[in-house]
Nucleic acid binder design. Structure first.
Lengths: 191, 191
DNA sequence: TTGGTTACGTGACCTACATCACATTCGAAA
DNA sequence: TTTCGAATGTGATGTAGGTCACGTAACCAA
């Protein structure tokens, strides 16, 4: 499926736009391709855009003391990602985004999103709902962190992203769960 | 300061409305008073409203196995709270909200918020930005959870809410940090 | 004032997970 | 095919924080 159709199907779950309106909506998005391992946002960069994933898998992560990596989000097709704190507050990136696999994305700049939102009430509605869902998911993950042990969080993760097990190396799964790769490895063998 | 002025000042940070527009905006909010200890949302309730705090302090929390409590948010004046997952998905509450102190709030129903957002583009803009900020804060807290030990999270919390130390019992602070009250207590004495 | 509940401190002990060290397997590039 | 680095498994050991147990202090309500 081509980029335009993927985005159209995605936003149709929240708002309905005429063909003409959607064409305008889509005109703000810029397609980009990246290959496996490539960095999209690096720590310290200025952040202008957010990214809608068409194919492939990205990760948004934080690196502590140049050593430990924590993954905030795996971004699969139809997911959005960026360093939103940097994007909205116009500060330098503290979050990195890079490609776990080759990936195609649609890129939307901060300025264009705001322009779109002010031009088209439905667009503002769409982005409100998108962020709502992200907020609720984030709260849920926070609770899971406080409440569940590693094993349960691991099972939760696989339920949420079943494809992940075969797609990404295990140490990245550990970095999402917030445990060491050794602990995750021992989780498997313990059955 | 009266309720109307507090809300007006709060939303003026994000959008500008005429007096007439704001009067309409405000007309959807219903003032309510609660006393210390009172439950606003209990687990299993249907959730119709979100709450804007005028005075006092609420907590939004989750109870695991009828035993352990985890606090998602302390809601101070000009903060918003609810069980948003239940509110937006029209499901039963899994999060509780109650009063740490006597409190006055403005109550906005889900239906009225959506009506307001569709009537007034600026309102939609306001709620998009409010949720944005919540999402970013939630991501930040998640990172802090993965990255920092209890002591550092405790210092972070006191920096974010300096009033809290004298306002709420220590076991609630422990429940926000996600540690046992004993561990928090030992943190104090260790310095 | 009194009796009961809630808050808080502190010791003893236990457990999940981190860290370090090393072995093994796998996959891509030469 | 060979080779080298990345990914993964696994043992030994250290530690932050949980849990249980108990004591004291503060705060209401009768």
């Amino acid at each position: 499926m081509e980029a335009k159709a993927i985005l159209q199907q995605h936003i149709a779950k929240t708002i309905s736009l005429s063909e003409e309106q959607f064409a305008h909506f889509f005109s703000y998005f810029k397609p980009m391709s990246f290959s496996k391992g490539q960095t999209i946002i690096g720590e310290g960069d200025t952040v202008d855009c957010e990214y809608f994933v068409l194919s492939g898998c990205l990760k948004a992560f934080y690196i502590n003391d140049e050593i430990k990596m924590y993954i905030l989000q795996f971004a699969m097709p139809t997911w959005w990602t960026s360093d939103y704190a940097a994007l909205y507050n116009n500060t330098r990136a503290t979050i990195n985004v890079d490609c776990i696999t080759d990936a195609e994305v649609l890129c939307l700049s901060n300025a264009d999103r705001e322009k779109l939102c002010s031009e088209l009430h439905e667009a503002e509605h769409f982005f409100r709902w998108r962020t709502n869902r992200g907020y609720i998911a984030s709260q849920k993950r926070l609770l899971s962190f406080m409440n569940n042990d590693t094993k349960k969080r691991y099972e939760e993760l696989l339920a949420l992203y079943p494809q992940l097990y075969n797609l990404v190396p295990k140490h990245l799964i550990a970095a999402y769960l917030g445990v060491s790769r050794e602990t995750l490895s021992r989780l498997y063998s313990a059955h």
